[in-house]
Write a protein that binds this DNA or RNA. Structure first.
Lengths: 231, 231
DNA sequence: ACACCCAGAATATGATCAAATTATCTGAAG
DNA sequence: CTTCAGATAATTTGATCATATTCTGGGTGT
């Protein structure tokens, strides 16, 4: 037996303690993008990040490479890197893939759900609603992502989960823009239905709820972004 | 006008001429993995690659980070990196996603197909069959990938295409193992049907052919890998 | 079996070089 | 005299390398 204290990979920002610098920088930058702290179209410079994040050049470089590989950043040909702007055509692609992946993750998650998961999801959803009520965009984005990530965790499908996380990075910045424009009140979800289905042991209901949740959310983004472009 | 000869990004290995070192290293390493030159489970060391590829340490580092972000390599926790071994459960995930993405890419590609594309695909498929006949595994893998990549190009769906390419990296090494075990003769495809559908302007036929192609191919991998494990 | 030490590999820094964008300057045309 | 175009200089940023530091794993000695 190799015998080593397997440090838990607790979904999100685990202890930053003993973690390589490049990993820490990656997670911080990732969160920045996911929460739309970086505006679509904005240039991302290495030297700017070394200053902002108080990190060395090499770790920043590696974090940027990882994020570009995931599609969260784009290589602008001449050696510049920017946050991509989501186009209407791309949203169709995202809807198709997210619909497939998220509903499958929901299905698997519902089937393997342990007791207490529904409670955890309900707590997250309550925090989410609270954030919406007080107009806290940052809190809304955080809790919304946490809700989905909790489902991914249960599904025990590492490839699907990593793909789903990658897709979040692609629309995260735009989601922030949308929330800032129409307010968090007008971004509906199907979390209540999913939780109810989970409690009832109705796998299909959970699957359906999350699929509708995804499609609905992405359609809002499409609509708002489309209006912004025509205006 | 900034006035610079916009160098073409010809799908695969474009001119290595004016390309940052880290980009060139990335593509070479990527091809190595895609063609199964690196065995699943094998350790990948930075210093090993600097020696093998005659490259500096920093570019190699960045290439490895990109590939790990795409799932082509895995971080072993302690600072080791290896080529991942595909498990049976993971194949189910890959089938689901590839089926969705590849069929959609085929559908879009068929709809937007220009004249002459069918000829190009037929030429690739002929080269593929020739490689099979002479038992050339490397050639088989190259041409098979090229066939699909050509369809991706026509589809004009950048996100779907990048996701599809990322999935290839996950089963590429295992595909090589499978070919080495059962021979290239026993890996069937539906390329002929796809080309026929393309010539007939039958979009649904192309979609169906490629979906079956993907599922069939992945099932072969599952079967062979399953036998190897039980043996 | 346990603790310690050593070799080797990965991580991280800073310096150096190259490229590109921005700013500035000059000159001619209106 | 003003304005705009073209070209050149200056600054910013990216790419790469050599080097120092830290950590992991294995061997060794008790």
């Amino acid at each position: 037996m190799s015998g080593k204290a397997a440090q838990k990979e607790t979904s999100e920002n685990a202890d930053f303690a003993r973690m390589p610098e490049h990993e820490a920088v990656y997670r911080r930058l990732r969160t920045l993008i996911l929460h739309g702290e970086l505006v679509p179209g904005q240039a991302v410079t290495i030297q700017g990040l070394t200053a902002d994040l108080q990190a060395g050049m090499t770790p920043v470089r590696e974090a940027i490479r990882r994020l570009t590989a995931e599609g969260a950043l784009v290589f602008q040909g001449n050696r510049r890197v920017t946050v991509p702007v989501l186009e209407a055509e791309n949203i169709d692609e995202l809807i198709l893939v997210r619909k497939t992946i998220e509903s499958e993750l929901a299905r698997r998650g519902a089937m393997r759900a342990k007791a207490g998961v529904a409670d955890r999801l309900e707590a997250i959803d309550a925090a989410l609603d609270a954030a919406i009520q007080r107009g806290d965009v940052r809190g809304y984005l955080t809790e919304n992502h946490r809700f989905h990530a909790t489902l991914y965790e249960m599904a025990a499908a590492p490839i699907l989960a990593s793909l789903a996380e990658g897709l979040w990075l692609r629309f995260g910045p735009s989601l922030r823009v949308v929330c800032g424009r129409v307010g968090t009140q007008n971004v509906p979800d199907r979390h209540k239905e999913a939780i109810a289905g989970l409690r009832a042991g109705d796998v299909d209901a959970v699957t359906r709820a999350m699929e509708e949740d995804v499609v609905q959310g992405m359609e809002v983004i499409r609509t708002v972004l489309g209006e912004a472009k025509s205006a």
